[in-house]
Amino acid sequence: MKGSGETPEWQEIDRFDGGTGWIAYPDEGMQRASHALVANDDGDGEADVWLVDPVDVPDLDSLLAGLGTVRGVVLLLDRHRRDGAAIANRHDVSVWLPRFFDGVAEDLDAPVELFRHDLADSGFTVHEVVDSRFWQEAFLYDRDRGILVVPEAVGTGDYLLAGDERLGVHPMLRLKPPSGLTRLNPEHILVGHGRGVHEDATAALEDAIRGSQSRTPALVVKNIRKILPL
């Protein structure tokens, strides 16, 4: 399910005026996606770049240099440590964590900044999705630019999608989906597993939440069939 080792065939995804993304191991089932968000871009080449849940790949720094200057690394899921600390150290920046995350900062071999609401002056704000002993997750939202970043609760990896869904709720959250997300009106949804949604994003999000419970049996059957030779 999860790739490892050298990543010569990584793919860039989600290129738009708010940044870009990449999938380090395109053939892995989990389709782990990383993103570079561009903020404070005045067209002078001095934009700030914020990396979200990054997995390192060859020539990543060249990709980032074309966007601006790395300002920090943001982790939005307690399990998504990935290569965040190593990349932060390489760029001499901190790893930024939502303040409600517990037990994550201690495991990171890099400087850490805790933030409660605003991600510095990036225009993004952080909001809680899940906060439990077993799962701590937050999302980023830039209301003015309509950019939503959700690391785990929703995604587009095949194992997350039931029927003709363009965006699906995580199997572990389907019976109690994150309905608060439907209060948002994103134009772009970037996810931690799979490619983002850039067309009719709000409609895709509303459909994912609304149909989450009723489509759960179909998703369970689909994923079992992928694992077992039925």
Results as ranks from 00 to 15, higher is better:
87 I>G: 06
133 R>N: 11
74 V>E: 05
18 G>W: 00
198 H>K: 06
175 L>A: 10
180 G>C: 02
76 L>N: 01
133 R>F: 14
126 V>F: 01
118 D>I: 01
116 R>Q: 14
190 L>Y: 08
74 V>M: 04
103 G>W: 02
147 I>D: 08
103 G>T: 06
114 L>R: 14
162 A>I: 05
199 E>W: 10
77 L>C: 07
48 D>P: 00
59 D>S: 14
197 V>Q: 14
25 Y>H: 07
148 L>D: 06
164 D>Q: 13
113 E>C: 11
87 I>Y: 03
137 E>L: 03
212 S>Y: 05
187 E>A: 12
77 L>N: 15
45 G>A: 04
33 A>D: 13
227 I>T: 15
217 P>M: 08
214 S>L: 13
145 R>P: 06
140 L>T: 07
97 L>P: 09
217 P>C: 04
166 R>F: 12
19 G>F: 03
21 G>V: 06
104 V>E: 04
57 V>I: 13
221 V>L: 13
38 V>R: 08
53 D>R: 03
161 L>D: 09
78 D>H: 10
147 I>A: 10
109 D>S: 13
8 P>A: 05
116 R>N: 12
179 S>M: 03
74 V>I: 15
114 L>S: 15
27 D>T: 14
80 H>V: 01
148 L>F: 02
95 V>A: 03
159 Y>M: 02
103 G>E: 03
115 F>I: 07
200 D>G: 14
5 G>S: 11
55 V>Y: 09
220 V>L: 15
121 D>R: 12
29 G>W: 12
180 G>K: 05
22 W>H: 09
93 V>C: 07
150 V>L: 00
23 I>D: 05
192 G>I: 13
152 E>K: 11
228 L>H: 06
56 D>E: 12
196 G>M: 09
169 V>W: 03
78 D>A: 08
161 L>H: 01
56 D>T: 06
210 R>T: 15
28 E>I: 11
24 A>M: 02
95 V>R: 00
107 D>S: 15
45 G>I: 13
169 V>P: 04
56 D>W: 02
86 A>D: 10
196 G>N: 09
87 I>M: 06
133 R>T: 15
42 D>M: 10
